[in-house]
């Protein structure tokens, strides 16, 4: 009987350790995604030709950061639509940084070659930037105001959100460049 109770004690102890381990694992401690109102995390990543593109250099512009990968169907769907947004708003100070998260660069290159585009694409195969932004889904996009703060965050993509994007970009572009929270 004593042995049995010890077995139960040991199992109970193990369960406690297990629960503790699960809650204390890095995944459970992940910060929640970057949210509207926060200063955007720093972003500096290489483009296809090896030059680095930095979000900090875009201060004064309205920037859409789009996290995508070639294996993600809604991302593939969103890509041309976001390129069109860039074409429509670029003259008013709108930029797009499309952060590719493919582990294999070639997958992204194959996708991009087949789709002529005007938006800047940068590559982050390790996903450090995705971690910094705390992505909750793919694709994820963040609209950064002229002052460098995140103003809108979207996870996932359907054609329906395109109108929301336009409205939000329009709103951010109409804000003065030297607004009250600027610099």
């Amino acid at each position: 009987m004593q042995t049995l109770s010890r077995v139960f004690t040991a199992t109970g102890l193990a369960a406690v350790v297990l629960l503790f381990g699960l809650t204390a694992s890095p995944a459970a401690l992940d910060v929640r995604g970057a949210v509207a109102g926060q200063q955007a995390p720093a972003l500096r990543l290489p483009t296809a030709d090896g030059t680095y593109l930095s979000l900090a250099d875009q201060k004064g512009n309205v920037v859409l950061i789009d996290f995508w990968a070639s294996w993600c169907a809604p991302c593939r769907h969103a890509f041309p639509a976001i390129d069109q947004l860039f074409v429509d708003f670029r003259s008013r100070g709108f930029r797009v940084i499309a952060v590719n998260l493919d582990e294999k660069r070639q997958d992204a290159v194959d996708f991009l070659v087949a789709r002529p585009h005007g938006i800047d694409v940068v590559f982050d195969p390790r996903g450090d930037s995705a971690r910094a932004f705390g992505l909750t889904g793919m694709p994820s996009s963040y609209l950064i105001g002229r002052d460098g703060t995140i103003r809108y965050a979207h996870a996932g993509y359907t054609d329906k959100v395109l109108d929301a994007y336009r409205l939000e970009i329009e709103r951010l572009l109409s804000e003065p460049a030297g607004g009250e929270h600027t610099r």
């Binding site: 102890l13 699960l22 890095p26 992940d30 169907a73 793919m138």
Partner: peptide, 26 residues
């Protein structure tokens, strides 16, 4: 007890696959 603890710790080592790490799953 040691065996139970070891199993518990290994099990707790499970990681969450992040959204951007799901290429193979997709």
């Amino acid at each position: 007890t040691l065996a139970a603890l070891a199993v518990a710790m290994w099990t707790a080592g499970c990681a969450t696959v992040q959204p951007w790490e799901r290429a193979r799953l997709a």
